[in-house]
Design a protein around this nucleic acid. Structure first.
Length: 124
DNA sequence: GCACTGACGCGGG
DNA sequence: TCCCGCGCCAGTG
């Protein structure tokens, strides 16, 4: 798979994250077929490399911590967007975080296979 | 080609 | 559970 294709896959997966839920970078990478590319997912989301209309605020790290707002308009933009979808964001010592048990996007095996099929079909 | 960086993650202690 | 070290790999200069 080309690097470019990985980013296309990432865009598709991100758009599939339901409202009121959040996924981790590693989770996105896994669904894209590259379990070790979590860093590339973060890189892609930064600077809007995945294009417009990507719900980047629904992507957090594995522990549920918000990114630190590097790529958002304002400091608390990601927090605001999540709260507007009903996600509770609480402040911990290391920053703002959400409860992944409650708000995490817990993929089913079917969903994972669905993505694999879709990518295969689209040749990416 | 080399070294360093980073919206990351895991496993051992 | 909490730290910490290490692995990861595309981008960048």
């Amino acid at each position: 798979m080309e690097t470019f294709d990985f980013y296309r896959r990432a865009a598709i997966v991100c758009r599939a994250i339901p409202r009121g839920r959040a996924a981790s970078y590693g989770q996105i990478a896994l669904l894209c077929g590259k379990p070790n590319n979590a860093r590339q997912v973060g890189y892609a989301l930064n600077r809007g490399r995945l294009g417009h209309g990507i719900p980047a605020h629904r992507v957090v790290n594995g522990k549920g911590y918000l990114s630190g707002a590097a790529a958002f308009e304002t400091e608390d933009m990601q927090k605001q967007l999540l709260e507007s979808e009903g996600v509770e964001v609480e402040y911990m010592e290391d920053g703002w975080k959400i409860d992944m048990k409650k708000y995490g996007w817990h993929n089913t095996m079917e969903e994972a296979l669905h993505f694999r099929e879709m990518f295969e079909q689209q040749g990416i």
